Simulated scan of single mutants.
Amino acid sequence: MIDKYPIPTSCPYCCSAVIYTSNAVIYGREYGNGRCYKCTKCDAYVGVHNRTNIPLGRLANRELRELKKECHALFDPIWKQNKRIKREHAYERLAKVLGIPVNECHFGWFDKEMLLEAREILSRPDWYKG
């Protein structure tokens, strides 16, 4: 997945430069590992995996971040509150319904269209049971 989604250097929204910086520029203080990639012009950013410079997903503007949150709000309770389905199995089921490889089923890497499709699927009752 890292090869498919390289470290961002140019913003896909405004074409400005992207820098690797402290996430305090976003939140006012450092959270987590304290690092992120941030567009120098617009509000697009993405955090990184702990102790690496590897992005957690694609650079996201406000709209994309909100869609990711909506998907997680629908998805996470399925495996957190349902003891009969593990997180990995929930992702496997979602990948199958989306028609994508399970190793590509990660909200952080989804574009707007994929997030909209995932949100529609996740809004269906019992999507994970089939």
Rank of each mutant, 00 (worst) to 15 (best):
V46W: 00
L116F: 05
A73C: 08
Y13A: 02
E30K: 12
V102S: 12
Y37T: 03
G28P: 01
H49F: 14
P125V: 01
R124W: 09
G99E: 05
K96M: 11
A60T: 01
G57S: 14
C105N: 11
P125N: 11
G99D: 11
A60P: 02
W79R: 01
N53D: 09
D3W: 08
D76L: 04
T21R: 03
H89W: 14
L74V: 13
N103Y: 15
V102Q: 13
E70V: 05
L64P: 00
L98S: 11
E66P: 04
I100H: 07
D76S: 05
G57E: 10
N103M: 14
F107I: 05
E117M: 07
P125T: 07
I7M: 12
A118M: 03
W79D: 03
K86E: 13
T21A: 13
C15K: 12
A24C: 03
I100F: 10
C42Y: 02
G47I: 04
T21V: 09
H49Q: 14
A17W: 09
E70G: 06
A73N: 15
K68Q: 09
Y31Q: 15
L94T: 05
A44C: 10
T21S: 13
V18D: 01
F75H: 02
C105G: 07
A60Q: 00
H106F: 11
P55M: 13
P101W: 04
V48L: 11
E63L: 05
V25K: 11
A60I: 00
G99A: 13
Y20C: 10
G34F: 10
D43T: 15
H72F: 14
